[in-house]
Amino acid sequence: MTTTPSSPAPSGFSMTPIGVIESDYPDKFGIPRQPGLAPAARARLVLTPPYDDPLAVRGLAAFSHLWLTFVFHLSPERWTPLVRPPRLGGNARVGVFASRSTHRPNRLGLSLVELLGIDTRDGVCLLLRGADLVSGTPVLDIKPYLPWAEARPEARTGFAPQAPPHFPVHFSPEAEATLAARGDGDSLHELITQVLAQDPRPAYRNGAESRIYGVRLRDVDVRFRAEADPAGDIRQWVVEIVAASAP
């Protein structure tokens, strides 16, 4: 059989971000490892010139969910063929292309988010829910989500057959008082609960420990530790909530 030689593959591509994310996550530690796991998380995608033309999003409001292609800009540019997914814990490794690791050859990410609204009063800003993106993330593209074409419940899911387990989250009286004094206390309480329930600690930490961790959400530092309840089950205990220090 005779084949026609294909054109040489291009050596590289140049891509320009179309916008930047502003989110409830000022820092990458604590961000849920998949989109939609913390629906209380809010974000804004602010399109940048020349992509901030309202004509570019005409018809987008008819869709409830979007795919965002973005860059893991805070991850190192280096990559390795084997990675350690948090889901597997320990030293178990899989190929980078069998994972959703941020340490990828081109640092590209793909996130499914809910579109709450579009503001075109001054440029273009998309209002999002359930995003798993740190503030400052550069977004390369937007595409509508089509469930009839892209939802495949029967698909095999390898080493991640279901959503990760959730830990109960409890707040100290001091933390509760801090939230009660805030105008956004209820939504922040919900966000903290959803983030900590997924145990943002390093994968090798899976039991009770005295160490206090800190996760930055919105404009606060949430300090917490993992404790064992009377039955021996792990729960996350929010020790205090304080104003975030300058980066």
Rank of each mutant, 00 (worst) to 15 (best):
V220L: 14
P168K: 00
G89P: 08
E114W: 02
S99T: 00
A177S: 08
P10M: 04
P144S: 13
A244T: 07
F97A: 07
S210F: 06
F159K: 06
G185R: 04
G117A: 10
A98N: 05
A41Y: 07
A98Y: 02
Q34T: 07
A43G: 06
I241P: 11
V71T: 11
A61L: 02
R87S: 12
V124E: 08
L60Q: 05
P10V: 03
H65R: 14
P85K: 02
A43C: 04
S135A: 14
P202L: 11
V83P: 01
D219H: 07
M1G: 12
A208F: 09
I241G: 10
V124P: 07
A180P: 02
Y25Q: 05
V113M: 03
T178H: 15
R218P: 09
D119T: 06
G95V: 03
L45W: 00
S14V: 14
D24R: 02
A40K: 05
R201H: 12
A40G: 07
P32Q: 00
Q198K: 13
A131V: 06
L82A: 07
P32I: 00
S7V: 05
E77N: 12
V220N: 08
Q236P: 02
P247K: 06
A61T: 02
I118T: 03
I234P: 01
R152S: 14
Y213E: 15
F224Y: 15
V83K: 03
V46W: 03
A92D: 09
S111P: 09
E77R: 13
P50K: 08
R84G: 00
H73Q: 15
P8G: 12
G207L: 15
L82M: 13
R211Y: 13
T120E: 06
S23M: 00
V215K: 07
A226G: 14
L60Y: 05
G109N: 10
Y51T: 01
A231V: 13
P86C: 11
L82Y: 09
G95D: 14
F29Q: 09
R182P: 03
A208H: 06
A177G: 11
P153N: 06
R33D: 09
L66I: 05
G232K: 01
L217K: 10
R121K: 12
P17K: 05
P17M: 03
